[in-house]
C-alpha cells in the first residue's frame, strides 16, 4: 500500500509528499523530517518571500481603479467568487423547485395541460467559467493532436513529404492566436450555420484557434522523433518483413512516444495560453471572458478578481502539465528518463 502511494506520487511528480507518506508510516522520522524541510521548506520559503514582495510592491501603485491589490485582497475576492458560486447554485435550485411546484399544480387542475420546463438562465459562476475553459482547450487540443500525430508520423517516415510540409509548418508556426481569430471567426460564421447548433459559435471559434496554435509543436516533435529512430530497429522490421502498418504500430510509434509526448506537453501549454486570449476576443464564456468582463466592469474589486483569474490560469496550467507528464511517464518505456 505504502509503496503504491509512493510510486503514484513519484509518477505524478508530486515528490513533495513522499516524505510525508513515509513519516506517516513511521519510517526513520529524523531522515524524513530533513527531507521534508529540504523539499517543502525551501519552495515554501520562496513563496512566502514572493507574497511579501507582492504585498509591499502592490501598495505603492495607485491606479484609476484604486490601489493594486495585494495578496490579502486577492484572497478575499477568491472567497467572494466561491460564495457567489454557492449563492447562484442555490438560486438555480430554488428556480427549479418553484417551476416543479407550478407545473405540478397545473397538472392537478388539468391532467392534459401542456407544461413547460424552462432551463435556468442565470449567469455563469466562476467555476462554470473554469469548466468552460477546460472543455474548450481540451476539444481544441484533441483535434490538434488527432491531426498532428498522424501527419507527424507520416512526414517523419517520408523525406519527400517532410520537405513538402516543412515550409508551411515554419510559416504557420509563429502566427499569434490574435491574428488567426478574426479569420477563424469569419470562417466559422460562414460555414457553421445550423438552426439548432450543438456548440456556440464562440466556443467553436475559440477551440479552432487553440487547434491552429497547438498543432505545431506536436507535429514537429513527432516528425523529428519518427525520423530519428535507430536505423537498425527499422532494419529488424525489414528482416522480419513487417508491413507498413505493423512497422508503424510496433516499431515507429513505441520508439517515438517520448518525443510525441514532449510535443504534446508543449502543445497543451501553448493551447492553454492561447485559449485565454481567444476567449477574450471570441466572448467564449470562460476564464478569458471573465478577465475581459472584469476589466470592462472597472469596479474597485475588478483588479483583485482579475488577479484571482490570473493565478487560477497559472495553477490550472501547471496541473494540466502535470497530467501530461504523468501520462508521458506512464506510456514511455524509459521510466528512468528525467522529465522536467
Amino acid at each position: 500500500m505504502k509503496d503504491k502511494i509512493i510510486n503514484f506520487l513519484e509518477l505524478t511528480g508530486f515528490t513533495w509528499f513522499v516524505p510525508l507518506v513515509k513519516l506517516a508510516t513511521g519510517e526513520s522520522p529524523t531522515q524524513q523530517l530533513r527531507d521534508l524541510a529540504k523539499m517543502v521548506g525551501i519552495p515554501l520559503l520562496a513563496i512566502v518571500i514572493f507574497l511579501g514582495l507582492w504585498h509591499v510592491g502592490a501598495a505603492k501603485v495607485i491606479t484609476s481603479l484604486g490601489q493594486v491589490p495585494g495578496p490579502v485582497q486577492v484572497w478575499e475576492q477568491a472567497g467572494n467568487l466561491v460564495d457567489e458560486h454557492y449563492i447562484e447554485r442555490e438560486k438555480e435550485k430554488k428556480f427549479y423547485e418553484r417551476q416543479d411546484i407550478r407545473n405540478a399544480k397545473k397538472l392537478e387542475k388539468n391532467p392534459d395541460a401542456k407544461i413547460k420546463v424552462r432551463p435556468y438562465t442565470g449567469r455563469e459562476t466562476y467555476f462554470d467559467q473554469i469548466l468552460t475553459s477546460l472543455w474548450t482547450v481540451f476539444v481544441g487540443f484533441v483535434i490538434a493532436s488527432l491531426v498532428a500525430i498522424p501527419v507527424g508520423i507520416i512526414s517523419g517516415l517520408s523525406n519527400t513529404l517532410y520537405s513538402a510540409l516543412n515550409p508551411l509548418i515554419q510559416v504557420f508556426k509563429p502566427i499569434s492566436p490574435l491574428a488567426w481569430l478574426p479569420i477563424v471567426t469569419m470562417v466559422v460564421s460562414a460555414v457553421y450555420v445550423s438552426a439548432d447548433p450543438m456548440f456556440s459559435k464562440a466556443f467553436v471559434t475559440s477551440a479552432i484557434t487553440v487547434t491552429l496554435c497547438s498543432l505545431w509543436p506536436t507535429l514537429i516533435n513527432t516528425a523529428v522523433g519518427v525520423s530519428s529512430i535507430d536505423r537498425d530497429l527499422i532494419n529488424v522490421g525489414r528482416v522480419l518483413r513487417l508491413n507498413y502498418l505493423t512497422t508503424v504500430f510496433k516499431i515507429v510509434i513505441p520508439s517515438s512516444i517520448p518525443m510525441i509526448f514532449t510535443g504534446l506537453r508543449i502543445s497543451l501549454g501553448i493551447g492553454w495560453m492561447v485559449l485565454i486570449a481567444a476567449e477574450m476576443l471570441a466572448q467564449n464564456p470562460g476564464l478569458g471572458k471573465f478577465v475581459w468582463d472584469e476589466f470592462q466592469n472597472g469596479s474597485s474589486n475588478s483588479l483583485s478578481r482579475i488577479m484571482v483569474a490570473v493565478l487560477t490560469i497559472g495553477i490550472l496550467g501547471f496541473l494540466l502539465d502535470r497530467v501530461m507528464l504523468t501520462m508521458q511517464k506512464f506510456f514511455s518505456y524509459d521510466k528512468n528518463a528525467v522529465i522536467r
Binding site: 537498425d232 530497429l233 529488424v236
Partner: peptide, 8 residues
C-alpha cells in the same frame, strides 16, 4: 552489433 532490441 549494438543488439538492436526494442527497448520497450
Amino acid at each position: 552489433q549494438n543488439h538492436s532490441l526494442f527497448p520497450w
